[in-house]
């Protein structure tokens, strides 16, 4: 285990966990309950799939640990989010939603229930990209969206402050910050990078992956390369970023607009004094 890294670990591999930051993966509510009885030191949050089975078990669950619910089939299972909303009074809840066709409805319902969202943006095709643009537009302009939708929120904050950012870090896929531990206890790279097992020289392997972030071709001419570091070229390096770049363009334009608004507001506030 390397210091400074958050490990995603199945609950079955927790015995003897020595206090590094850990995200615990459980399969069901019984798993949640078991971990919550004696939560490991360093617990960042629990992670559980949200499916018709697990949602049904959630009624009455009032455990106090933060939970990340993973909605594998957002297009069909989005109404299950209603099972998560009563939990927000007790602990932070987040919904992880893959950007696949029909995912937009899940985001719409999640934010309307005040549930923060983390999008897993793989290499989306044209339909999910259109939905992503619509989700972004609601995130930026919707009067009823008051919760973060990542990675939009993280990127927007960084652009607004003119700070450097890494999409890999915001998306929780940076191997220098996040690693998987499999059912056998083996350390692996994040799933986006193929989830390969780390050899003994694990750090070198992660470094080699990091070296590839800079990407080539389309990335070289891309205005977002500094923050994106080739994120959308994984796993298929041939993926065309035309749609994604439009989304990032809109995010960047919104940051410019917001910065101008905030400057005008500061001026107004200064005038009041």
């Amino acid at each position: 285990m390397t210091a400074g890294i958050v490990y995603r670990v199945p609950a079955t591999r927790l015995a003897g966990w020595s206090g590094e930051p850990v995200i615990v993966r459980v399969d069901d509510v019984a798993g949640l309950a078991t971990v919550c009885v004696d939560p490991p030191a360093g617990l960042v949050h629990l992670e559980m799939p949200l499916s018709p089975q697990t949602a049904g078990e959630l009624a009455g669950w009032r455990g106090g640990a933060p939970i990340d619910f993973r909605l594998a089939d957002p297009a069909n299972d989005y109404p299950l989010l209603y099972a998560c909303s009563p939990l927000v009074d007790y602990a932070p809840v987040r919904i992880t939603i893959p950007v696949v066709e029909g995912f937009g409805r899940a985001v719409r319902l999640a934010v309307s229930l005040q549930l923060p969202v983390r999008l897993q943006i793989g290499q989306p095709g044209p339909e999910p990209i259109d939905e992503l643009a619509e989700v972004l537009s609601r995130f930026l302009h919707g009067s009823t969206v008051a919760v973060p939708v990542e990675p939009f929120q993280g990127v927007l904050n960084a652009l607004l402050r003119g700070e450097p950012f890494s999409l890999w870090a915001i998306a929780e896929d940076d191997p220098a910050l996040f690693r998987e531990v499999d059912a056998l206890g083996e350390e692996r790279l994040p799933v986006r990078l193929g989830g390969a097992r780390l050899a003994a020289s694990g750090e070198d392997q992660a470094g080699a992956v990091a070296a590839r972030f800079a990407g080539d071709g389309e990335c070289r001419a891309c205005p977002f390369a500094k923050g994106c570091l080739g994120y959308f070229k994984w796993p298929d390096p041939g993926y065309s970023c035309a749609g994604i770049r439009e989304v990032l363009d809109r995010l960047s334009a919104a940051a410019d607009e917001l910065r101008a608004d905030l400057a005008a507001f500061d001026e107004l506030a200064a005038g009041d004094r």
């Binding site: 109404p79 209603y82 319902l109 934010v111 009823t144």
Partner: peptide
């Protein structure tokens, strides 16, 4: 309990005021 789930499968999911 299941009422909003039924409605979210129909018109309400597209309502701009769903959050309310």
């Amino acid at each position: 309990g299941e009422r909003p789930i039924h409605l979210a499968r129909r018109a309400c999911i597209d309502c701009e005021y769903l959050a309310l």
